[in-house]
């Protein structure tokens, strides 16, 4: 079936419909059709494995419990980068425990997080490389994408796109000055740093002025609050200026190259 379904996209490519599409629409359409055919090929391959699967003796789960009984035709869903497929295979059972396939799902899926270090891996043919073959280092990203698709469905990716942004210029200056003072790896040319710091100091002054101007626009802020805030800003600005000054002095004491 997988082999015949591959002919579909070829005939579509050959037809008049595809020829009438502009590049962008054609790219999207080809991507959609192509992925679905790949999903069908994936499914076809899994079905073929199911037909060829032979019973293995002495199968043990991650806890080392032997699962002697077998349920044929066990089916479970699998998310792939091409779309959902079904995995049909033998499930090794043992009374009063879940079957080995379900144990495997637990060790790999997010909704039952493991405690402690990884358990010993299970080497099921469709999930892990065949033990007779060399480990497939190059295929890790492909397999990771498939696993990630399932994880995303379980909400693992939530809020991970939270950006990191530089702070306001005064805090930025404070953080970086500390770094310059204490972590002089790759010290930049003294003159460049001093020049840049002078520019930053001018920016800092402008920033403080802007903040005061914005504060004054809030009519409901009491005079006392404005006074307190201005005093705090003054202290902050004085500290920062002192730090810039110390850095400039350090730089001036450094022998000229």
């Amino acid at each position: 079936m997988a082999r015949t379904s591959f002919e579909g996209p070829l005939s579509w490519l050959d037809g008049a419909g595809a020829g009438a599409l502009d590049h962008v629409v054609f790219e999207e359409e080809l991507g959609t059709r192509g992925r679905d055919r790949l999903r069908q090929m994936f499914q076809g391959h899994l079905d073929l494995r199911a037909l060829r699967e032979e019973r293995i003796e002495g199968v043990a789960c991650a806890e080392g419990v032997c699962h002697g009984a077998v349920e044929g035709g066990h089916v479970r869903p699998l998310s792939t980068i091409f779309g959902p497929v079904r995995v049909t295979r033998l499930a090794y059972r043992r009374a009063s425990t879940c079957n080995a396939a379900a144990v495997q799902v637990r060790t790999r899926c997010p909704w039952v997080p493991q405690r402690g270090p990884h358990r010993p891996p299970l080497c099921w043919p469709e999930m892990r490389s065949d033990r007779s073959e060399a480990p497939d280092v190059e295929g890790v990203e492909r397999r990771a994408r498939a696993v990630a698709a399932a994880w995303r469905g379980a909400g693992i990716g939530r809020s991970l796109d939270t950006p990191v942004r530089p702070p306001a210029s005064s805090a930025l200056l404070a953080s970086n000055l500390e770094a310059y003072r204490h972590e002089p790896l790759y010290p930049p040319a003294t003159s460049l740093v001093v020049r840049a710091l002078r520019r930053l100091r001018r920016r800092l002054t402008a920033d403080l002025g802007l903040r005061v101007a914005r504060l004054e626009r809030y009519e409901d802020v009491s005079t006392d609050e404005i006074a307190r805030t201005l005093a705090r800003l003054d202290v902050e600005a004085a500290e920062l200026r002192a730090r810039v000054g110390r850095l400039e002095e350090d730089a001036a004491r450094t022998p000229a190259p």
Partner: peptide, 21 residues
Amino acid sequence: PVVVAAAVSEVLGDERLRAEM
């Protein structure tokens, strides 16, 4: 990030793969 995490899980979850690396 989810793909990276899954890749790390692949590497750490498969002793033969880890040993090969």
